[in-house]
Design a protein around this nucleic acid. Structure first.
Length: 641
RNA sequence: GCCGCGUUAGCUCAUUUGGUAGAGCAGUUGAUUUGUAAUCAUCAGGUGGUCAGUUCGAUUCCGACACGCGGCACCA
C-alpha cells in the first residue's frame, strides 16, 4: 500500500502528498502567509480542523480567515470560549448547547439564578483573558461510556442527555481548550487567540431546553462575532441604523398609529396611518378585480357550533375570543374568514361551471395571541386579512395555485420586494382528514410549485391543520422574518362544512378550497413597508404627499391657491402658513417624511411657480404649478392604475 | 404563556446611599415677516404605570398586577 495520497486543489491542481498530512502542513508548503491566514480545511465539501489528518485522496480547500466559511468557525469558537468563561466565573452553571448562528452565536446555560445583562461585562472580560492566553483547541475521540462517565461525574446532566440520545455506535468528539472541554463536532480554529477582539455579548434571554415549552427554561446568552473589531463595528452600526427604521418608532414619529394598554395587541390607527392602510386596500382591490375575484363580507361573530364543525374550536379554541353566553348560544369572534366564506358559497346550488369561484374578503380577525408574542404591527391580536377562498375542482388546483403565486410575487414587486423566501409546510401532527386526502393536497401543491419554477424550502410538519401551505416570508429592518402571503390547499373544510357542487355527470361533489392571503395581515404588511422604505413611502402611499410652506405671510393667499389646485388634482396636500422660518418648516416636514415640500415666497407668487424639494435630497427646483401637477400625475397613482 | 429587563411632562431623556422631581423639543402667550434641516423671550405642564407593603417619610426598598422591550415557546 502506498503511503502517498493525491489531493486536488480548488483550481484543479493535483498534488501527491504523504498520507496523513494535515491542512496546516499543506498550507505551509504553499506559503508562510497562507499558513498564517488559514484556519480550517474543507475536505470533500466538509470542513475540518487544520490539524485533521487526511488519509485518502481528496479534494481540498484551505479556509482562510477572510473566507465566508470562516465566520461560522469563529462564532462557534466564541461560543466555546464564552462557556468556559461562564463556568470559570459561575462554577455552579451547567452547559447545554452553543451553536453559531447568523451574525453570531449563543450558548444556553442551566443555572438556578438566570444571568442578567449586568453579568455580561464580567463574562466578556473573562473571554478576553481566555483568548489572550491562546489556549489550543484540541480534538479527542472518546467512547460513549467514557464520555457519559465524565459528564455524569461533573454533574452535567444536559450533556449526558445529549449523549444518551446519540446512536450507540457513534463515537464522541470532544474539543478541549486549556482545561475546559465540551462535547462538540467541530471544527475549531487552532487556538483561542485567533478569535481576536471582534466579538461582543449582546443580550440574555430565556430559552427552553430542547426548544420544548414543557421543559425547564435555560438562560441563553447571545453574542455577535466577526473577524476583527472593524467588522464588528460595521455590524453594530448596521444594527443602529436598522433600529432607526423600526416601524414602532417611525409610526410614532409619523403619527400613523398607537397602542395602549386597554387594547393590547390592537391598533389605534391615526388619520395618516389609516390613509396608508386604505391605499393598500384600494390597490389590492383593484388587483383582485382584475384577477377575477368577487368581494364578500361575512359576520365577525359566529356561533361556536360552526367553529366546532370546522375543527377550529378543537385546535384553537383556547386562542379564540368568545362572548358571554347571554342566551344559550356562545359566539366566537372570528379568528379566520373561511367558515364565513363557505357559508356564502353554500347559498344556492353551485355547478362545476361556476368554478373556480374566487371570493375575497377584507376580513378583520381576532386571535388571542400569547402576550409574549405581541410585537408592534407585526404580531397583533386584531388584524385585517386580504383573504380569499378559491373554490375549485381538484383538476384546477395546480393552475389556480400557480396563478396565486404569480399574483403574490407581482404584487410584492410593486413594493420593491424582489427577494422573497417561500416555505412549503406539509402535514402537521395534529390535523383533520385522512392521509389519502393529505397526499393528494401536498402533491397538488408540489406540482403547482414546479409549474411556477420558484425556489422554496421545505418546512416539515408546519402546515395548517386542514391542509399544506406555502408561506411567503419577508424580513424586517432588524433581521426578523415575518410571514406575509400564504396559500393553503384545503381538501378538508369544504366537506366538514358541507360545501358541494354539481359536476358534469350530475353528481354532487365536494369542491377544493384554496385559502390565500397576499399581503397577509394588512397591519403586518404596513409595518414591513414602513421599515422597508425607512418611512420614505413612495408618493402613492404617502398619507400626506405635499406640504405647501410659505416663506412670509405675504404669500399666504398664493399658498392657498396652490394647495387648492393640488387637492383638485387628487394630491393629498397640507399647508403650513405658521409664523416660522422656512428652514424650520423644512426640517419639521422632512422629519415627518413628507415626500414633497413646496416653498412659496414672493418670487414664486409673482411667477406662479413653486420651489420643489423632495425628501432625501436638498436640491430644489422651481417649476410652474401646472408643470408640477402634470409631472406628479402618474407617480401619485398606484402601480396598477 | 415562560425567562430577563423596563415604565419619570405630549415626545426624547436626566435626577446614586429614601427627605414629595429637572432639561431639551413640542404646547401657551408675546416679539420677530423670515429663502430651504431648529429666531428670541414668556408661561404652563408631573398623585413618578397601577395597587399594596416596609418606613416618621418611598420616584428611590419589598411584593402583586398591567403594559412594553429582548428572546424562547406559540402563530389557524
Amino acid at each position: 500500500m502506498s503511503d502517498k495520497i493525491t489531493i486536488t486543489f480548488p483550481d484543479g491542481n493535483i498534488k501527491s502528498v504523504k498520507k496523513g498530512i494535515n491542512g496546516f502542513e499543506i498550507a505551509e508548503e504553499i506559503s508562510k502567509s497562507l499558513a498564517k491566514e488559514s484556519i480550517a480545511i474543507k475536505i470533500n465539501s466538509e470542513i475540518f480542523d487544520l490539524k485533521r489528518n487526511i488519509e485518502r485522496d481528496a479534494k481540498i480547500q484551505i479556509i482562510k480567515k477572510s473566507d465566508e466559511e470562516a465566520l461560522d468557525i469563529i462564532r462557534h469558537d466564541c461560543a466555546h470560549v464564552m462557556a468556559e468563561a461562564v463556568q470559570a466565573l459561575f462554577p455552579e452553571t451547567q452547559v447545554t448547547i452553543g451553536p453559531s448562528i447568523e451574525n453570531g452565536f449563543y450558548y444556553d446555560f442551566a443555572r438556578k439564578e438566570p444571568f442578567t445583562l449586568s453579568d455580561l461585562p464580567k463574562i466578556e472580560k473573562k473571554m478576553h483573558e481566555i483568548i489572550n492566553k491562546g489556549e489550543e483547541f484540541t480534538r479527542e475521540v472518546w467512547s460513549q461510556k467514557e464520555a457519559k462517565k465524565f459528564f455524569k461525574d461533573k454533574g452535567e446532566v444536559y450533556k449526558l442527555e445529549l449523549i444518551e440520545d446519540l446512536d450507540p455506535e457513534e463515537e464522541i468528539s470532544i474539543y478541549k481548550q486549556g482545561e475546559w472541554l465540551d462535547l462538540c463536532r467541530g471544527p475549531h480554529m487552532n487556538s483561542t487567540k485567533e478569535i481576536g477582539k471582534g466579538f461582543k455579548l449582546m443580550k440574555v434571554a430565556g430559552a427552553y431546553w430542547r426548544g420544548d415549552s414543557s421543559n425547564i427554561m435555560l438562560t441563553r446568552i447571545y453574542g455577535t462575532a466577526w473577524r476583527n473589531e472593524k467588522e464588528l463595528d460595521i455590524h453594530l452600526k448596521q444594527i443602529e441604523e436598522a433600529e432607526k427604521r423600526d416601524h414602532r418608532k417611525l409610526g410614532k414619529q409619523m403619527s400613523l398609529f398607537h397602542f395602549q394598554e386597554e387594547a393590547p395587541g390592537a391598533v389605534f390607527w391615526h388619520p395618516k396611518g389609516w390613509q396608508l392602510f386604505q391605499s393598500l386596500i384600494n390597490y389590492m382591490r383593484l388587483r383582485q378585480d382584475r384577477a377575477g375575484y368577487v368581494e364578500t363580507n361575512t359576520p365577525d361573530l359566529l356561533d361556536k357550533s360552526l367553529w366546532e364543525a370546522s375543527g377550529h374550536w378543537e385546535k384553537f379554541g383556547d386562542n379564540m375570543f368568545t362572548t358571554d353566553p347571554k342566551e344559550e348560544k356562545v359566539f366566537a369572534i372570528k379568528p379566520m374568514n373561511c367558515p364565513g366564506a363557505v357559508e356564502v358559497y353554500k347559498q344556492g346550488l353551485k355547478s362545476y361551471r361556476d368554478l373556480p369561484l374566487r371570493m375575497s374578503e377584507f376580513g378583520k380577525v381576532h386571535r388571542y395571541e400569547p402576550s409574549g408574542a405581541l410585537h408592534g404591527l407585526m404580531r397583533v391580536r386584531a388584524f385585517t386579512q386580504d383573504d380569499a377562498h378559491i373554490f375549485c375542482t381538484e383538476d384546477q388546483i395546480t393552475e389556480e395555485s400557480k396563478t396565486v403565486c404569480d399574483l403574490i410575487l407581482s404584487i410584492y414587486k410593486d413594493f420593491g420586494f424582489n427577494d422573497v423566501r417561500i416555505k412549503f409546510s406539509d402535514r402537521p401532527e395534529k390535523r383533520v382528514g385522512n392521509d389519502v386526502v393529505w397526499d393528494k393536497a401536498e402533491e397538488a401543491l408540489r406540482l403547482a410549485m414546479e409549474a411556477t419554477g420558484l425556489e422554496y424550502t421545505l418546512n416539515p410538519g408546519e402546515g395548517a391543520f386542514y391542509g399544506p401551505k406555502l408561506e411567503f416570508v419577508l424580513r424586517d429592518a432588524i433581521g426578523r422574518d415575518w410571514q406575509c402571503g400564504t396559500l393553503q390547499v384545503d381538501l378538508n373544510l369544504p366537506e366538514r362544512l358541507g360545501a358541494t357542487y354539481v359536476d358534469e355527470d350530475g353528481q354532487k361533489k365536494v369542491p377544493v378550497m384554496l385559502h390565500r392571503a397576499l399581503f397577509g395581515s394588512l397591519e403586518r404588511f404596513t409595518g414591513i413597508l414602513i421599515e422597508h422604505y425607512a418611512g420614505h413611502l413612495p408618493l402613492w402611499l404617502s398619507p400626506s404627499q405635499i406640504v405647501v410652506a410659505t416663506i412670509t405671510s405675504e404669500t399666504d393667499n398664493y399658498a392657498f391657491e396652490v394647495k387648492d389646485q393640488l387637492i383638485k388634482n387628487n394630491l393629498r396636500t397640507e399647508i403650513d402658513i405658521r409664523n416660522e422660518k422656512i428652514g424650520y418648516k423644512i426640517r419639521e416636514h422632512s422629519n415627518s417624511k413628507i415626500p414633497i415640500i413646496l416653498a412659496v415666497g414672493k418670487k414664486e407668487s409673482e411667477d406662479r411657480t413653486v420651489s420643489i424639494r423632495r425628501i432625501g435630497s436638498s436640491d430644489t427646483k422651481v417649476m410652474k404649478l401646472e408643470e408640477l401637477i402634470n409631472s406628479l400625475q402618474k407617480e401619485s397613482l398606484s402601480p396598477i392604475e
